[in-house]
């Protein structure tokens, strides 16, 4: 019995989330005594590398119509592959692609779905974050087939050094009433949910013209930039940078909060971060209660010094 994994690609390269999902799936397969089989669709290069994360076979549907994202078609591919491989466990990443495909597949196969898993399953029980990261739930899947989507940055990738056999999977795709006309990337910067380090700033920076030092710090650290909700709402920063309960939820290794007071809604989106550093002039800012390291001080003085000290460390 095999575990099936959907490995997403972007412009022909497998995503970091795909490798995490593959590693998660391989660990589930090992626990169950089965094989890990990954599915890749459309144009994708270097897909053999999935072997390094424990996948033994990659089913590649090379039909280029799948280069245009269509969750209805991919759900059909996954259902076909699951039947062919006899898979009763199917793994996705809980990202933009997984959120579109996994629910469709769940309804198609009448299989229980747990989204945003943060740990390996314990039998049919899967742990996930709920209440926007303020609590956890253990959810039991009651159906024979289970579908799990893994929260990015929450389960370590294990490199096994193995190799994967790539097998072409040919199948007829259903016609659907949807067409991607164009994909516009607003930035070539590091994506927020995949970043190991995130530098985030809020109203304490007083105006959009002061973001230069935040961007410099992020650049030096190889980090992504983010912001609080008020800053996105008044238009100082683009909406796609807004992290928090009603923005993007992230869980990087290291999160810098500069001039952000730490409202409960903001904390909900970032409290999965492994290490939190807070820089704020207000010693009473609630964010310090959620922080690992804190500096009470003026960002305009602290951040340039921080940048200089990090440059020195990297030199």
């Amino acid at each position: 019995m095999s575990v099936l994994i959907y490995a997403d690609s972007n412009n022909g390269s497998l995503t970091k989330n795909a490798l995490e999902a593959a590693s998660y799936g391989a660990q589930v397969a090992q626990a169950k005594g089965g094989n890990a089989v990954a599915v890749v669709v459309g144009t994708a290069n270097n897909i053999e590398q999935l072997g390094n994360y424990g996948v033994t076979k990659v089913l590649h549907v090379s039909d280029t119509t799948l280069d245009k994202f269509d969750p209805q078609k991919i759900a059909h591919v996954m259902a076909t592959a699951a039947k062919q491989e006899g898979s009763e466990t199917i793994i996705f990443a809980h990202d933009y692609s997984g959120k579109s495909i996994a629910p469709r597949l769940s309804a198609k196969l009448d299989a229980g779905l747990v989204t945003g898993a943060i740990a390996l399953p314990n039998g049919n029980i899967i742990k996930k974050a709920v209440f926007s990261g303020k609590a956890f739930a253990e959810v039991e899947v009651n159906t024979s087939t289970q579908i799990i989507s893994v929260l990015p940055n929450s389960v370590d990738k294990v490199e096994t050094g193995g190799t994967a056999e790539v097998v072409a999977l040919a199948l007829e795709l259903p016609s659907t009433g949807i067409k991607v006309k164009e994909t516009k990337k607003e930035s070539t910067e590091l994506s927020l949910t995949e970043a190991d380090i995130v530098v985030s700033a809020g109203r304490g920076l007083k105006g959009p013209e002061n973001w230069g030092m935040v961007e410099d710090l992020a650049k030096e650290l190889g980090a992504a930039t983010a912001c609080s909700r008020p800053v996105a709402d008044i238009g100082w920063r683009p909406h796609h940078e807004h992290v928090g309960q009603t923005g993007i939820a992230i869980r990087p290794n290291l999160y810098f909060a500069i001039g952000i007071s730490g409202a409960i809604q903001h904390l909900a989106g970032v409290n999965g971060s492994k290490v939190i550093v807070v820089i704020n002039t207000d010693a009473e800012a609630p964010f310090f209660k959620a922080a690992d390291y804190g500096i009470v001080g003026d960002a305009f003085e602290v951040v340039p010094k921080l940048l200089a000290a990090i440059k020195e460390l990297k030199a």
Binding site: L113, V130, E138, V139, I276, I295
Partner: peptide, 25 residues
């Protein structure tokens, strides 16, 4: 198709370690 078995709360942070603003190093 699924049922919640139990809930739990995250472990509280053990406390913030403060660094002086003049000692960013």
């Amino acid at each position: 198709a699924t049922s919640v078995k139990n809930f739990s709360l995250p472990a509280a942070k053990t406390g913030c370690k403060y660094v002086d603003a003049d000692n960013v190093q």
